[in-house]
Design a protein around this nucleic acid. Structure first.
Ligand SMILES: [Zn+2]
Ligand SMILES: [Zn+2]
Length: 441
DNA sequence: TACTCAGGGCCAATG
DNA sequence: CATTGGCCCTGAGTA
C-alpha cells in the first residue's frame, strides 16, 4: 500500500515497482533499459539541468538519463544476455528497502503523531505560567560556571567529557525574558489565535494578523526576538536528564547512547513547543499545525543539532548540550547506522561553519522547513506557501546585507536543505530501531 | 509446487 | 524513421 503513494524519483510519475535498484515509474524503467541496452549517449542542448516531470521528461534524454543515474538506478541490473524472468542479486536490497519503508510509515503514522498529540494535550490542559514553562530557570541565577558531573557507564575507557558548563550556552537571557513571557503566557487555543494575539499585543493589533504590521526589514528581527533563548532549552534538556538519572539507582546509569536518545527526545519536545509558541505558526489551523509538525519534526531535530555543532562544537568533538564526546569514539563504537549518521552530519557542520552560519539564518531555515507547502495533507496551502516565501525573502535579504562579501550565501544555505532532509530520514529510521530495541528488553 | 514480481519484449501511438 | 510507454511474457527465488 505505501508504495502506491510513492512517486518516481526521476519524473514524479506513478511508481510501478522496483526497477534497476529502486522504485520508479514504468516509463523510466523502459527508458533506462533502452538507454543501457543500446549504449546510448545523449547530449543536452541546454544547461544540463532540464526540468524532469511527467510532461517534460521526453524533452531531454540526456538530463533524464543523468537523473536516473543520480537517483541510483543501476546499469548492472540491465542484463547483457537479455535473459527474461527470474531474479537478480538485487532481490535482498528490495526486501530491505520495503522493510525500512514500512517501518518508516509505521513510525510516521503511529508514533510521531502520538507524540505530538500527547504534547499538545499537555499543552492544552495546563496553560503554562512562565515558571512552569522554564523548570530550570533557577539555574540562571547560579554562580557561573555551573558544573556538574553526570555519572556515566558503558565503555569505561571511553573519554567522555561530561562536564556541564553554562558559560558557553548562556547568552543575554534577561533581555529576551519579557518577550518570551508574553508569548508563552498567551492562551494557547491556536484556532482562535487572532483574538488572543490582538489582545496580548495591542501595539501590533491589526485585522490582518499579528505580523502584518511589521515592516519587512523588521520581520526577521521580530522572528528572532520571539525565539526562546538557547540556554533555556539546554537547561530544560539537562534538567530532565538529571531527573531521569535521579530516578535510577547509582549503579544503574545510562550509557552514552541512551543519553543521546533521551536528549533527542527532549529536544523534540522543545521543538514542538517552539513551533507552537511561534506567532506565525499560531496563525495556522490546528490541523495544519499537526501535519506540518508530523512532516518535519526530524528535520528540525537535525537542524537544531547542526546549529549547536556549528556554534559550540569543537573540531572532532560532538557537542551534546553541555557534554562533549569525541566523534572518533562514536565512529568506532557505535553501529554502522549511527556512525554513518554522525559522519554525514559532521560533514554538513563543516560546510556550514565555512559559510559562517549564524543564528538568524538558523531560525529562517527552521521556518522554511516547518512551513513546507508540499506536505500533502495541508488544508490552507496558500497560507503556508506565503509564510515560507516571506521567510525566504527575509533570509535572502539578511544574507545579502550582512554577508555582502560572501557571494551567494543564500543559495549555499538552501542547497544544504536536501542533505538535512536526507539525514533526518535516516535519523527517523535510527530512532525507530532504537525504539524497537528498547521495547524488546 | 504455486506464487511473486522484476527482468525482458512487443507494438500502437507519437513526432 | 526513432522513440515512447503501457502491457504482457518469463522464470529464479520464496513460502
Ligand atoms: Zn519516471
Ligand atoms: Zn537537458
Amino acid at each position: 500500500i505505501p508504495e502506491s503513494e510513492e512517486s518516481c524519483p526521476v519524473c514524479g510519475d506513478r511508481v510501478s515497482g522496483y526497477h534497476y535498484g529502486l522504485l520508479t515509474c514504468e516509463s523510466c524503467k523502459g527508458f533506462f533499459k533502452r538507454s543501457v541496452q543500446n549504449n546510448k549517449h545523449y547530449t543536452c542542448t541546454e544547461q544540463q539541468s532540464c526540468p524532469m516531470n511527467r510532461t517534460q521528461r521526453k524533452r531531454c534524454p540526456y538530463c533524464r538519463f543523468q537523473k536516473c543515474l543520480a537517483v541510483g538506478m543501476k546499469t548492472e541490473a540491465v542484463r547483457a544476455d537479455r535473459m527474461r524472468g527470474g531474479r537478480n542479486r538485487f532481490g535482498p536490497l528490495y526486501r530491505r528497502d520495503r522493510q525500512i519503508k514500512l517501518q518508516r510509515a509505521d513510525y510516521q503514522t503511529n508514533v510521531a503523531p502520538y507524540r505530538i498529540k500527547m504534547e499538545t494535550t499537555i499543552w492544552h490542559q495546563s496553560p503554562l505560567t512562565p515558571h512552569d514553562h522554564y523548570p530550570a530557570e533557577g539555574l540562571t541565577s547560579l554562580p557561573l560556571p555551573y558544573s556538574e558531573q553526570l555519572p556515566l557507564t558503558g565503555h569505561p575507557q571511553e573519554k567522555c567529557h561530561m562536564s556541564f558548563d553554562y558559560h558557553t550556552a548562556s547568552t543575554s537571557h534577561a533581555m529576551h525574558r519579557t518577550v518570551s513571557e508574553t508569548y508563552t503566557t498567551r492562551s494557547t487555543q491556536a484556532s482562535s489565535s487572532n483574538a488572543n494575539i490582538v489582545d496580548c499585543d495591542p501595539d501590533h493589533a491589526s485585522p490582518l494578523g499579528p505580523f502584518s504590521s511589521f515592516l519587512t526589514p523588521n520581520f526577521l528581527d521580530a522572528l528572532i526576538e520571539s525565539e526562546q533563548d538557547e540556554s533555556q532549552l539546554c537547561a530544560k534538556v539537562l534538567s530532565s536528564l538529571q531527573r531521569e538519572q535521579a530516578n535510577r539507582g547509582k549503579h544503574d546509569c545510562l550509557n552514552t547512547f541512551s543519553i543521546m536518545c533521551k536528549m533527542a527526545d527532549q529536544t523534540l519536545f522543545g521543538l514542538v513547543e517552539w513551533a507552537r509558541n511561534s506567532a506565525l505558526f499560531k496563525e495556522l489551523k490546528v490541523e495544519d499545525q499537526m501535519v506540518l509538525l508530523q512532516n518535519c519534526w526530524s528535520e528540525l531535530l537535525v537542524l537544531d543539532h547542526l546549529y549547536r555543532q556549528v556554534t559550540y562544537g569543537k573540531e572532532g568533538l560532538l557537542f551534546l548540550t553541555q557534554a562533549q564526546i569525541e566523534v572518533s569514539t562514536i565512529i568506532s563504537q557505535a553501529g554502522v547506522t549511527l556512525s554513518g549518521l554522525v559522519s554525514r552530519t559532521q560533514d554538513l557542520v563543516a560546510k556550514l561553519k565555512a559559510l559562517y552560519f549564524d543564528r538568524k539564518e538558523f531560525v529562517c531555515l527552521k521556518y522554511l522547513v516547518l512551513f513546507n507547502p508540499d506536505v500533502k495533507a495541508v488544508l490552507n496551502r496558500r497560507q503556508v506557501e506565503q509564510t515560507q516565501e516571506r521567510v525566504n525573502r527575509a533570509l535572502m535579504e539578511h544574507t545579502r546585507q550582512t554577508h555582502a562579501g560572501h557571494a551567494d550565501k543564500f543559495g549555499q544555505l538552501l542547497l544544504r536543505l536536501p542533505e538535512v532532509r536526507s539525514i533526518s530520514l535516516q535519523v527517523e529510521e535510527y530512532l525507530y530501531q532504537q525504539m524497537l530495541h528498547t521495547k524488546h528488553n
